[in-house]
């Protein structure tokens, strides 16, 4: 079964982030430019939070304001779930499904940020694995059928 490390090899280790001092406007501009749904908010080398399109839409509705000049740190989600490179892709999927989250940062054993995976990456991988299991089983049945 594929691990997070395998997944990062395919999708790359690029992580887009803003510093805690960034405004909402700067953060949204980065998300638009990179066409991504969420960015990490960093305090130096440490993850301070994550900010998503959903967070933005919800806070704008609640505060009845576009919030563009406010600091993003006010609206980010602080409790950030993460995974390690050794975890399986299926574990990530279970975590994302149960917590209703679309993005997971990847931290190595020294707590260095080494990547960010999205629900799209994970789903694609899990579906491919299931498909190749099906192929393998079908080949096994056909192969045995022909030879035996």
């Amino acid at each position: 079964m594929a691990t997070v490390k395998n997944l990062l090899k395919i999708k790359g280790t690029q992580v887009w982030s803003v510093p805690v001092t960034a405004t909402v406007r700067e953060t949204l501009k980065l998300m638009a430019e990179k066409n991504i749904g969420a960015v990490l908010v960093m305090e130096g080398e440490k993850i301070a939070g994550i900010f998503s399109e959903r967070d933005y839409a919800r806070y704008a509705a609640q505060r009845e304001s576009l919030l563009l000049d406010e600091p993003v740190s006010e609206f980010m989600t602080r409790a950030v779930y993460y995974v390690s490179p050794q975890q399986t892709v299926e574990e990530c999927m279970a975590l994302m499904t149960s917590k209703h989250i679309r993005h997971l940062p990847v931290l190595d054993e020294d707590h260095n940020l080494v990547g960010l995976i999205s629900i799209g990456d994970v789903v694609k991988q899990v579906l491919e694995e299931k498909e190749s299991t099906i192929q393998g089983l079908e080949n096994y049945i056909l192969g045995r059928g022909y030879s035996g």
């Binding site: 638009a32 839409a57 563009l68």
Partner: peptide, 16 residues
């Protein structure tokens, strides 16, 4: 969508 809103807000082309 949430995405449409975030994108339009980024380029300053939306008012609530």
């Amino acid at each position: 969508s949430e995405r449409d809103f975030a994108r339009k807000a980024a380029d300053g082309s939306v008012s609530l």
